[in-house]
Protein backbone atom coordinates (compact mmCIF):
# COMPACT_ATOMS: atom_id res chain seq x y z
CA UNK A 1 0.00 0.00 0.00
CA UNK A 2 2.54 2.56 1.17
CA UNK A 3 6.20 2.41 0.28
CA UNK A 4 8.62 5.03 1.55
CA UNK A 5 12.13 4.78 0.20
CA UNK A 6 15.15 6.76 1.37
CA UNK A 7 13.02 9.82 2.16
CA UNK A 8 14.98 12.97 2.92
CA UNK A 9 13.21 16.19 3.83
CA UNK A 10 13.73 19.40 5.75
CA UNK A 11 13.04 23.07 6.14
CA UNK A 12 15.40 25.30 4.18
CA UNK A 13 18.93 24.35 5.33
CA UNK A 14 17.82 22.13 8.22
CA UNK A 15 17.56 18.44 7.43
CA UNK A 16 14.88 16.67 9.46
CA UNK A 17 14.32 13.34 7.74
CA UNK A 18 17.52 11.49 6.82
CA UNK A 19 16.54 8.51 4.71
CA UNK A 20 13.30 6.95 5.93
CA UNK A 21 12.37 3.50 4.67
CA UNK A 22 8.98 2.06 5.53
CA UNK A 23 6.55 -0.34 3.93
CA UNK A 24 2.94 -0.63 5.07
CA UNK A 25 0.53 -3.31 3.83
CA UNK A 26 -3.27 -3.38 4.05
CA UNK A 27 -4.59 -4.54 7.42
CA UNK A 28 -1.42 -3.55 9.30
CA UNK A 29 -0.99 -1.22 12.25
CA UNK A 30 2.40 0.46 12.54
CA UNK A 31 3.56 2.53 15.48
CA UNK A 32 6.27 5.12 15.00
CA UNK A 33 7.79 6.13 18.28
CA UNK A 34 10.59 8.45 19.16
CA UNK A 35 11.73 11.28 21.39
CA UNK A 36 10.74 14.90 20.76
CA UNK A 37 12.38 16.37 17.69
CA UNK A 38 13.06 13.01 16.09
CA UNK A 39 11.03 13.89 12.98
CA UNK A 40 7.74 12.10 13.73
CA UNK A 41 5.43 14.96 12.89
CA UNK A 42 7.53 15.97 9.88
CA UNK A 43 7.08 12.49 8.45
CA UNK A 44 3.30 12.64 8.83
CA UNK A 45 3.14 16.17 7.36
CA UNK A 46 5.24 15.12 4.35
CA UNK A 47 2.98 12.12 3.68
CA UNK A 48 -0.11 14.35 3.93
CA UNK A 49 1.40 16.94 1.57
CA UNK A 50 2.32 19.96 3.68
CA UNK A 51 4.41 22.45 1.74
CA UNK A 52 6.15 23.59 4.93
CA UNK A 53 8.74 20.91 4.20
CA UNK A 54 10.89 20.32 1.19
CA UNK A 55 11.55 16.79 0.05
CA UNK A 56 15.16 16.66 -1.15
CA UNK A 57 15.32 13.02 -2.23
CA UNK A 58 13.58 9.70 -1.96
CA UNK A 59 10.11 8.55 -2.89
CA UNK A 60 6.72 7.82 -1.39
CA UNK A 61 4.41 5.60 -3.38
CA UNK A 62 0.82 4.74 -2.53
CA UNK A 63 -0.68 1.84 -4.44
CA UNK A 64 1.92 2.56 -7.09
CA UNK A 65 1.12 6.29 -7.39
CA UNK A 66 3.85 8.83 -6.76
CA UNK A 67 2.30 10.48 -3.69
CA UNK A 68 4.80 13.34 -3.59
CA UNK A 69 3.62 14.67 -6.95
CA UNK A 70 0.02 14.99 -5.73
CA UNK A 71 -1.70 17.90 -3.96
CA UNK A 72 -2.92 17.30 -0.40
CA UNK A 73 -6.55 17.06 -1.58
CA UNK A 74 -5.60 14.55 -4.31
CA UNK A 75 -3.82 12.43 -1.69
CA UNK A 76 -7.01 12.53 0.40
CA UNK A 77 -9.01 11.35 -2.62
CA UNK A 78 -6.60 8.41 -2.99
CA UNK A 79 -7.35 7.47 0.62
CA UNK A 80 -4.68 9.10 2.78
CA UNK A 81 -5.86 10.65 6.05
CA UNK A 82 -3.93 12.57 8.69
CA UNK A 83 -5.32 13.01 12.17
CA UNK A 84 -3.67 16.26 13.26
CA UNK A 85 -1.72 16.67 16.46
CA UNK A 86 -3.19 20.17 16.67
CA UNK A 87 -6.52 20.23 14.79
CA UNK A 88 -7.26 23.68 13.37
CA UNK A 89 -10.20 25.76 14.59
CA UNK A 90 -12.37 27.03 11.76
CA UNK A 91 -14.95 29.51 13.06
CA UNK A 92 -17.99 30.04 10.88
CA UNK A 93 -18.20 26.54 9.40
CA UNK A 94 -20.14 23.80 11.11
CA UNK A 95 -18.89 20.23 11.49
CA UNK A 96 -21.70 18.96 9.24
CA UNK A 97 -21.02 21.48 6.46
CA UNK A 98 -17.31 20.75 6.66
CA UNK A 99 -17.84 17.00 6.37
CA UNK A 100 -20.33 17.51 3.58
CA UNK A 101 -17.87 19.63 1.58
CA UNK A 102 -15.14 17.01 2.03
CA UNK A 103 -17.32 14.03 1.12
CA UNK A 104 -19.03 15.75 -1.81
CA UNK A 105 -15.70 16.67 -3.36
CA UNK A 106 -14.14 13.28 -2.80
CA UNK A 107 -17.12 11.49 -4.36
CA UNK A 108 -17.06 13.84 -7.32
CA UNK A 109 -13.32 13.30 -7.88
CA UNK A 110 -13.50 9.50 -7.70
CA UNK A 111 -16.56 9.38 -9.94
CA UNK A 112 -19.26 8.45 -7.42
CA UNK A 113 -22.68 10.07 -7.52
CA UNK A 114 -23.41 12.67 -4.81
CA UNK A 115 -24.67 11.40 -1.47
CA UNK A 116 -28.12 12.61 -0.41
CA UNK A 117 -28.45 14.87 2.61
CA UNK A 118 -30.52 12.22 4.35
CA UNK A 119 -28.03 9.45 3.70
CA UNK A 120 -25.17 11.66 4.85
CA UNK A 121 -26.95 12.62 8.05
CA UNK A 122 -27.75 9.04 8.96
CA UNK A 123 -24.12 8.06 8.34
CA UNK A 124 -22.99 10.92 10.58
CA UNK A 125 -25.36 9.78 13.33
CA UNK A 126 -24.06 6.22 13.07
CA UNK A 127 -20.41 7.32 13.37
CA UNK A 128 -21.25 9.69 16.21
CA UNK A 129 -22.75 6.79 18.13
CA UNK A 130 -19.60 4.77 17.48
CA UNK A 131 -17.49 7.49 19.09
CA UNK A 132 -19.90 8.43 21.90
CA UNK A 133 -20.39 11.91 20.48
CA UNK A 134 -23.29 13.88 21.92
CA UNK A 135 -26.07 15.30 19.73
CA UNK A 136 -25.75 18.98 18.88
CA UNK A 137 -22.15 18.46 17.87
CA UNK A 138 -22.80 18.64 14.12
CA UNK A 139 -23.95 22.24 14.26
CA UNK A 140 -20.96 23.41 16.29
CA UNK A 141 -18.25 25.28 14.44
CA UNK A 142 -15.33 23.15 13.37
CA UNK A 143 -13.08 22.65 16.45
CA UNK A 144 -14.01 26.12 17.74
CA UNK A 145 -13.97 26.08 21.54
CA UNK A 146 -13.54 22.28 21.55
CA UNK A 147 -11.61 20.77 24.45
CA UNK A 148 -8.43 18.84 23.63
CA UNK A 149 -10.34 15.58 23.85
CA UNK A 150 -13.20 16.83 21.68
CA UNK A 151 -10.77 17.94 18.99
CA UNK A 152 -9.11 14.53 18.84
CA UNK A 153 -12.47 12.79 18.80
CA UNK A 154 -13.48 15.07 15.93
CA UNK A 155 -10.41 13.91 14.01
CA UNK A 156 -11.43 10.28 14.42
CA UNK A 157 -15.00 11.19 13.49
CA UNK A 158 -13.75 12.65 10.20
CA UNK A 159 -11.67 9.53 9.66
CA UNK A 160 -14.78 7.42 10.22
CA UNK A 161 -16.75 9.51 7.71
CA UNK A 162 -14.05 9.64 5.03
CA UNK A 163 -13.11 5.92 5.31
CA UNK A 164 -9.47 6.31 4.26
CA UNK A 165 -7.23 3.45 3.24
CA UNK A 166 -4.30 4.80 5.22
CA UNK A 167 -4.77 6.72 8.47
CA UNK A 168 -1.91 8.49 10.16
CA UNK A 169 -2.69 9.33 13.76
CA UNK A 170 -0.26 12.05 14.81
CA UNK A 171 0.01 12.18 18.62
CA UNK A 172 -3.68 11.40 18.87
CA UNK A 173 -3.17 10.43 22.53
CA UNK A 174 -1.73 13.79 23.62
CA UNK A 175 -4.15 15.89 25.65
CA UNK A 176 -6.53 12.99 26.23
CA UNK A 177 -7.60 11.76 29.65
CA UNK A 178 -7.88 8.02 30.11
CA UNK A 179 -11.61 7.81 29.31
CA UNK A 180 -11.27 9.85 26.13
CA UNK A 181 -8.24 7.78 25.17
CA UNK A 182 -10.25 4.57 25.54
CA UNK A 183 -13.14 5.94 23.47
CA UNK A 184 -10.85 7.13 20.69
CA UNK A 185 -8.91 3.85 20.67
CA UNK A 186 -12.12 1.83 20.61
CA UNK A 187 -13.30 3.93 17.65
CA UNK A 188 -10.06 3.33 15.75
CA UNK A 189 -10.25 -0.41 16.46
CA UNK A 190 -13.83 -0.60 15.20
CA UNK A 191 -12.86 1.15 11.98
CA UNK A 192 -9.98 -1.26 11.37
CA UNK A 193 -10.39 -3.91 8.68
CA UNK A 194 -8.29 -5.95 6.31
CA UNK A 195 -8.35 -3.30 3.62
CA UNK A 196 -7.04 -0.36 5.58
CA UNK A 197 -3.88 0.44 7.49
CA UNK A 198 -2.97 2.71 10.38
CA UNK A 199 0.22 4.49 11.33
CA UNK A 200 0.24 5.62 14.94
CA UNK A 201 2.73 8.32 15.75
CA UNK A 202 3.34 8.67 19.45
CA UNK A 203 5.84 9.57 22.09
CA UNK A 204 4.37 7.31 24.76
CA UNK A 205 3.41 3.69 24.82
CA UNK A 206 0.04 4.47 26.48
CA UNK A 207 -2.16 4.42 23.34
CA UNK A 208 -0.58 1.14 22.25
CA UNK A 209 -2.22 -0.59 25.24
CA UNK A 210 -5.51 -0.02 23.45
CA UNK A 211 -4.53 -0.17 19.79
CA UNK A 212 -2.19 -3.10 19.38
CA UNK A 213 0.43 -2.49 16.69
CA UNK A 214 1.82 -5.17 14.40
CA UNK A 215 5.09 -3.27 14.05
CA UNK A 216 6.88 -0.69 16.16
CA UNK A 217 9.55 1.60 14.69
CA UNK A 218 11.82 3.93 16.61
CA UNK A 219 12.58 7.22 14.94
CA UNK A 220 15.65 9.22 15.92
CA UNK A 221 17.36 12.09 14.09
CA UNK A 222 15.13 11.49 11.12
CA UNK A 223 15.99 7.79 10.74
CA UNK A 224 14.24 4.61 11.72
CA UNK A 225 16.88 3.14 14.01
CA UNK A 226 15.04 0.07 15.21
CA UNK A 227 11.98 -1.91 14.19
CA UNK A 228 10.27 -4.71 16.02
CA UNK A 229 6.98 -6.14 17.25
CA UNK A 230 4.65 -4.75 19.87
CA UNK A 231 7.06 -5.82 22.68
CA UNK A 232 9.49 -3.09 21.53
CA UNK A 233 7.04 -0.45 22.73
CA UNK A 234 6.94 -2.04 26.22
CA UNK A 235 10.73 -2.07 26.32
CA UNK A 236 10.85 1.64 25.45
CA UNK A 237 8.32 2.43 28.14
CA UNK A 238 10.47 0.63 30.73
CA UNK A 239 13.95 1.72 29.67
CA UNK A 240 13.39 5.01 27.82
CA UNK A 241 14.93 5.88 24.47
CA UNK A 242 18.53 6.44 25.63
CA UNK A 243 19.87 2.91 25.32
CA UNK A 244 18.74 2.69 21.75
CA UNK A 245 19.57 6.23 20.57
CA UNK A 246 23.13 6.10 21.96
CA UNK A 247 23.78 2.97 20.00
CA UNK A 248 22.41 4.60 16.87
CA UNK A 249 24.41 7.79 17.38
CA UNK A 250 27.58 5.65 17.46
CA UNK A 251 26.56 3.94 14.25
CA UNK A 252 25.55 7.09 12.31
CA UNK A 253 28.14 9.27 13.98
CA UNK A 254 26.14 12.14 15.39
Amino acid sequence: MLKIENLNAGVEETKILNGINLTVKPGEVHAIMGPNGSGKSTLSSVIAGSDDYEVTSGSVSFYGDDLLSLDPDERAHKGVFLSFQYPVEIPGISVSNFIKAAITEKRKKIGLKPISAKELLSKMREKMALLNIKPGYLSRNMNEGFSGGEKKRNEIFQMAMLEPKLSILDETDSGLDIDALKTVAAGVNKLKNEENATIIITHYQRLLDYIIPDFVHVLHNGRIIKSGGKELAKELELNGYDWITKEADKKWGC
Binding site: A48, D71, H77, E105
Partner: peptide, 24 residues
Amino acid sequence: FYMRTRGISEKDARQILTFAFVAE
Protein backbone atom coordinates in the same frame (compact mmCIF):
# COMPACT_ATOMS: atom_id res chain seq x y z
CA PHE B 1 -3.95 22.83 4.59
CA TYR B 2 -6.23 21.15 7.12
CA MET B 3 -9.17 21.36 4.72
CA ARG B 4 -7.11 20.12 1.79
CA THR B 5 -6.03 17.03 3.72
CA ARG B 6 -9.76 16.28 3.96
CA GLY B 7 -10.06 16.31 0.19
CA ILE B 8 -11.33 19.86 -0.31
CA SER B 9 -9.62 21.57 -3.25
CA GLU B 10 -7.61 24.71 -2.61
CA LYS B 11 -10.10 26.86 -4.53
CA ASP B 12 -13.08 25.54 -2.61
CA ALA B 13 -11.23 25.73 0.70
CA ARG B 14 -10.45 29.41 0.06
CA GLN B 15 -14.07 30.17 -0.78
CA ILE B 16 -15.45 28.26 2.18
CA LEU B 17 -13.04 29.94 4.58
CA THR B 18 -13.90 33.34 3.17
CA PHE B 19 -17.60 32.69 3.63
CA ALA B 20 -16.99 31.35 7.12
CA PHE B 21 -15.15 34.56 7.93
CA VAL B 22 -18.22 36.73 7.28
CA ALA B 23 -20.81 34.24 8.54
CA GLU B 24 -20.62 35.46 12.13
